[in-house]
Design a protein around this nucleic acid. Structure first.
Lengths: 322, 322
DNA sequence: GTTTGTTACGGCTACCGTAAAGATC
DNA sequence: GATCTTTACGGTAGCCGTAACAAAC
């Protein structure tokens, strides 16, 4: 038994049970992979792969268990490497954050600036995607932290730390008729105009549509996008109205646009940090999290990672302006 | 990085940070250990051990983290081996159960018999100890299952499956004056005679004393022991009276002894199965657990292992006679 | 002087890559 | 014939054990 063997098994599973591809991905020879996996099978007295002819078509039942174990072991080894890095230089390393465009563009900018000022040595990188993609990145270990609203896919193995309550407002082109209205907006008011929404992969997009459905009103969605700036551009061009997080609108910068209050129409979405439960976090990662939300001090984060409970959404706080 | 290195690190920590002893325990040379640990430290760019002169006096902070990781990895490797064994022959293997004398001697005998009849190929072995020792055995992986009442020590990393409610009765020598009493026994009645109790390391022993304390009565404890048969022998010899689990008394076999009802005096103790959370269980282990208590079917056990919650004690059932 | 950890060195295992064969689509 | 896995084989890196050394109690 051998770490290499576990690495190979995991990679083979990752590459659709194709030894050649696994070998390529690992920059090694394909017979080596074959041999090592055979050795592992031999040692366990069990076939892990189902071979038909000279193809590998599936994992056996014990193969699936073995794969799960291998993945856990490999993750622990990653953690061990991080422990070393943390000890060697607590202020040098990398931090990958997967998040949505809106979060990256509006929420994270001041935080990232503060973080970079404090930790010059940390290579911070942002990856964009919709919540489902973000979950994948975090689950695969390709991102350290995810920040977004709840995804539509399963979140196995991830801990969720609720951070922000996201209230939506209505965005319209300046001079829009609705701006004349002095009473609070209604769903019916909005449905009279074509709408631009967030893509359905975003909890925000879905929630808005559901709130219309509840009122038995069908809004006319002309476009859905994944990018707040794209949405704003379309609104400014007069294609329709939109709902966006309140903090995605900046009266000074967003010339040609106006916003109207809509807290009475749409419940806030909760945006959370998502992270792998069994992952060692570098010290600066805890600092980053604390910068996101004072609620999440390091000990509290550790506690949340250990407990399997989903956490109370009331931990989320309203976003502080800029 | 290398499995051997993790194994060495764990063993060194286990042997009081003594390389020589670790080498001995692993049947290898001491310089090998030294070298491999140095290599690991080198790869992590971090010292894991605190060296003073030529002694190792402590683990550094990253060393502690590394040790924890190494232990988790090694446990997973054990699991992997078990996956292999399970697949190679589901009915052959070993099962180590750590439990108290009373459980082994009375509760487990019929269950062990049924289990052995069903699984000839399984090497079943019982280890005796008090609850604290049992926890240690399970936590160290030297026993697969623990069966006993709650220990006084921490149970980190263990899952508790409540199984039995243990009611106590009073044991007296035949012809004892109390046997004449027609009304229910009181604490005061009992305190009039010297008592023999379970050792304080048993929840049972402590609970009995506490129930007296609550009544502000001080019983006269002449002896405490860890073995039900020893206690019975002393009671039979007239040294005093005792409280024991109801099922530890057998009117036919225990000549010279008599029992009196005491359910109104002492709350039942809960005896639970204890097992390591991240341990792969062989199929027959699930079967054994089911034989202990029908409540604990395999899927339910898996669920309990995954959830970090302490479980409801009401899952425990009264022990069925014989 | 005994115990304990590190350094030095030679032997050997076992892993790796190349080459070739076997099998299936 | 193309793709993919397995078998065969030689080179070599790295692990292991012995021996010698250094340092502490």
């Amino acid at each position: 038994m051998n770490l290499q063997q576990l690495r190979y098994l995991a990679e083979v599973a990752d590459r659709g049970l194709n030894l050649s591809r696994a070998a390529q991905a690992l920059h090694t020879s394909q017979p080596g992979i074959s041999k090592q996996i055979r050795l592992l099978e031999e040692e366990l007295h069990t076939e892990l792969l189902v071979r038909e002819g000279n193809r590998i078509t599936a994992l056996t039942a014990p193969g699936q268990e073995a794969l799960a174990i291998a993945q856990r072991v490999l993750r622990e080894l990653d953690n061990l490497r991080r422990v070393g890095e943390q000890a060697a230089d607590p202020e040098r390393g990398s931090l990958v954050i997967a998040t949505t465009h809106a979060h990256a563009r509006y929420l994270l900018i001041p935080i990232v600036q503060r973080f970079q000022a404090r930790f010059h040595g940390v290579n911070l990188s942002l990856r964009q995607g919709n919540p489902d993609q973000i979950m994948q990145l975090v689950q695969a270990g390709q991102a350290d932290l995810g920040l977004c609203t709840a995804p539509t896919v399963a979140t196995e193995g991830l801990a969720q730390l609720p951070c922000y309550r996201i209230w939506r407002c209505v965005l319209l082109p300046q001079g829009h008729a609705l701006l004349q209205k002095t009473q609070p907006l209604t769903h019916r008011d909005l449905a009279a105009y074509p709408m631009i929404t967030l893509d359905a992969s975003f909890a925000g997009g879905v929630a808005i549509l559901e709130s219309f459905a509840k009122e038995q009103i069908q809004p006319q969605v002309v476009l859905s996008a994944t990018d707040a700036d794209v949405i704003k551009a379309f609104v400014a061009s007069g294609m329709g109205i939109a709902t966006l997080p309140e903090w995605a609108f900046d009266a000074r910068r967003d010339q040609g646009l106006a916003r109207m209050e809509a807290r009475h129409l749409f419940r806030p979405a909760i945006s959370s940090l998502w992270l792998q439960r069994h992952q060692y976090l570098r010290g600066y990662a805890y600092e980053f999290i604390r910068m996101l939300s004072e609620v999440w001090q390091a000990p509290r984060v550790r506690e949340a990672l250990a407990s399997e409970q989903p956490l109370d959404e009331s931990l989320a706080v309203d976003v502080q302006p800029g």
